[in-house]
């Protein structure tokens, strides 16, 4: 009887030993949440929206069991082919950054109606394309408030790219923010009518600085780069846009109005993992409360702390 007991115990131990398979914490690639990322324009290394989207995905990779693939526009024949390639790789969600691939995306989205797509920084009507935009006005408001805070001439400038609604939103927020801090402030506004003409940006900036503007805010793409560099040359302050553009003109760029695409991408993925496809086809606007927009770290000026405190105060008041 005793022997049988020992035997049973032994067998039980062996059985439990082989059935209690050590649960692998790491999921297999197939089990993971897959994200595809179609970059646009310059692709990775643009030090702007592409890199932000990439950063968001890297952060998401750190926090969730996800796998992401990215494609640079240079690596594919065209956007359509790139996006389709990502579809075929069976991604749970495919992010497309910027307005440039929108047309191609909508074509592919129609072809793969069950595939979830997210387009960032522009709006699509396709039912399987979620749109994430940023409240430029709120971000610009902060930029205006900062400009008003640091101006000494009481004159600040705004340079827009195309004369379109989106840029109008920037302009409106910027003026409101500035007036909130200094109601008497003079805000110069000019549209370059191009996103890609750096020289034009330089020219407009030169003109505005001449008109005593000492803080310039450009929402004009590559045109804005000219503005920032001119401000640096003329020893004026400048505020970047979309991403932290400090590296473009390190002597001038006090801050940048950030579209936190990384946050947006991260949050979308987080929510989609929590409740799959719950956001599909929706238009999500990321505001200050979502940390979707904000200012890049303040630099260049001295002292920084009082300005930071002031901006924080304004932000809380919004």
């Amino acid at each position: 009887m005793k022997k049988i007991g020992v035997l049973t115990l032994l067998i039980t131990l062996l059985l439990t030993g082989c059935t209690s398979k050590e649960s692998t914490t790491a999921k297999t690639v197939a089990e993971r949440y897959h994200v595809g990322l179609m970059l646009s324009d310059m692709g990775l290394g643009d030090l702007s929206i592409s890199d932000l989207a990439f950063d968001g995905l890297v952060r998401a990779t750190e926090d969730f069991d996800i796998v992401f693939r990215y494609l640079d526009p240079q690596e594919v024949k065209d956007y359509e082919q790139g996006i389709e390639q990502l579809v075929k790789q069976k991604n749970d969600v495919i992010f497309v950054i910027g307005y440039m691939p929108q047309e191609a995306l909508e074509k592919v989205a129609k072809k793969y109606p069950k595939q979830q797509f997210v387009i960032v920084d522009t709006v699509s009507d396709s039912p399987n394309i979620s749109s994430i935009t940023f409240d430029e006005e709120q971000g610009s408001y902060l930029a205006g408030a900062l400009a008003a805070t640091i101006t000494q001439s009481n004159v600040i400038g705004f340079i827009g790219g195309e004369d379109v609604d989106v840029i109008h939103n920037f302009e409106r927020g910027y003026i409101e923010g500035a007036k909130k801090v200094k109601p008497t402030i003079d805000v110069l506004t000019q549209y370059a009518n191009t996103y890609t003409d750096e020289a034009k940006g330089t020219a407009i900036a030169k003109e505005m600085i001449t008109s005593k503007a000492d803080v310039l805010f450009a929402a004009a793409g590559m045109t804005g780069t000219g503005v920032l560099r001119e401000a640096a040359r003329a020893k004026a302050y400048a505020i970047g846009v979309d991403s932290d553009q400090y590296f473009l003109a390190e002597k001038a760029v006090v801050t940048s109005m950030m579209k936190n695409i990384d946050v947006a991408v991260y949050e979308y993925i987080r929510k989609d993992i929590e409740a799959p496809r719950s956001q599909m086809g929706q238009h999500i606007t990321m505001g200050i409360q979502d940390n979707g927009v904000g200012l890049a770290p303040i630099r260049v000026i001295d002292p920084i702390a009082p300005v930071e405190q002031a901006i924080e105060k304004i932000k809380r008041a919004m």
């Binding site: 993971r32 310059m42 643009d46 030090l47 990439f54 990779t61 796998v67 992401f68 990215y70």
Partner: peptide, 26 residues
Amino acid sequence: TATKRLAVRTGGISNDIEHISLYQQD
């Protein structure tokens, strides 16, 4: 700037290697 961009793109292939690592782990 170009160097910085290169650094970011190098980070990109880091993701690829991570990806491969996951497959290999698989």
